[in-house]
Amino acid sequence: MPTTDNAFATALRLVLHLDPALREIVALSLQVSLAAVAVGALIGLPLGAALALWRFPGRGAVVVVLNALMGLPPVVAGLAVYLLLSRAGPLGQFGLLFTPGAMVVAQVLLILPIIAALTRQQVEELHAEYREQLQSLGLSRLRRIPTLLWDARFGLMTVILAGFGRASAEVGAVMIVGGNIDGVTRVMTTAIVLETSKGNLPLALGLGLVLLALVTLINGAAYLVGETARRRLG
């Protein structure tokens, strides 16, 4: 496969030459996805924990919807955010459409269900073990949340990485709300789509390899941090 050979050579050349355009795209990809993960975790972790701790009418429905939203097609998320942020939409006056901010919003929408649903499951399991002890210490449900999140941290790290994976890999949402504007909202995945549509398959695949390497690097770093902490704290 000449295309595949070319792709590896292209990927290598892209990385070795530290192509400034590529650097910009990589930096924006990371910025957008990391920001989305940060916001997603900030909302999703407490939300998931709350769902694990409180029983209320309709809770089952919320859990089912959350689990289902884990499979939300990125294009649908993108379209929803587009209609929301468009000038004609309810949040139009913020002028966020076709900015990295809009891409962050779309990705948050994609990864929030993943983070919240998986957090709920992990916290629920841990709470089954901790409940009586925490109750004995006189902790209200609200005050149990930080304790449970902290003690579930190793499992939650994987949850957050799953969110990061989805955010950095998706293209449908950021394409619609970002517009793939050169130098402004072009990220790795939209650049790959663009190069594919130009028929420049080696470059597209090369960019894909760079993206893969980047995601692997981040996962590797998180794994190392997690393993070290796990060995230290059990």
Binding site: V39, G101, V104
Partner: peptide, 10 residues
């Protein structure tokens, strides 16, 4: 979160 992030990203 967007308010915090918007300026730096733009």
């Amino acid at each position: 979160a967007l308010a915090l992030m918007g300026p730096s990203l733009n």
